[in-house]
Nucleic acid binder design. Structure first.
Lengths: 110, 110
DNA sequence: CCTTACATATAAGAGTCTTATATATAAAAT
DNA sequence: ATTTTATATATAAGACTCTTATATGTAAGG
């Protein structure tokens, strides 16, 4: 798995990205990120929950409590239109970072 | 310029990369990173000096004090063989991050 | 003379991540 | 039946990297 120092800052993009496909619970967000990156990117839930709260305060996502059949409470987060709009510039900035690092001396790109 | 949250963690790779070409003073390291990335990546000296100390303690770089003709003191850092060896796995890890983010939903790559 | 570029250094603070801890239900295994 | 594993959320303490602010001093240009 990719180390902490390097992946730092990717959680925000990762969360928005997986929520772009469909609404998810916090727990599912963690699994999706791990699955979609084939285990390369992994975040602890202790990091994700506070991140989800922050993103909700910024109105990028909106969460709503659900009670499943068996009486289990969980919070489903969905991307807001504002959150969706954030994705483009965010990805753009990441793209610029990649370009910058490549210029800094060819970063092997698999 | 690329924001703090996103570039976090790149300083180490950036420093090693510019020192791979030639030994440099701390001040020069900052300028080189900025120049080679066409201004996209920029670090304050307050971030770079402590970083250079850490890297020296890890034996990735070695610094030696110089006194220029005019009596100006400055420290020239050069990459050690150990530091050079670090570059490959570091770049590999960054490469894997890029790949992971691409999988997380196409990151536009310019 | 004053400002800009060179050159190094430290302190205080913000933000993101980790490990550790806590609580509780559902499903699967023994 | 009981234990373990997976689901599900939550917070606290601490590590690390970066920023702004501050400090000191020399060299060159206007």
């Amino acid at each position: 798995m990719i180390g902490t120092g390097i992946k730092r800052g990717t959680a925000e993009l990762a969360v928005l990205s997986v929520l772009e496909d469909s609404p998810l619970h916090g727990y599912e967000v963690a699994r999706r990120i791990e699955q979609q990156t084939k285990g390369a990117l992994r975040f602890t839930l202790a990091a994700l929950y506070p991140m989800l709260y922050r993103m909700e305060q910024r109105r990028w996502i909106r969460g709503s409590w659900e009670t499943s059949d068996a009486g289990r409470r969980r919070r489903r987060y969905r991307l807001t239109p504002a959150g969706k709009k954030m994705l483009s510039p965010l990805r753009q900035e990441w793209s610029e970072l990649f370009q910058a690092l490549r210029r800094l001396k060819k970063v092997a790109h698999a």
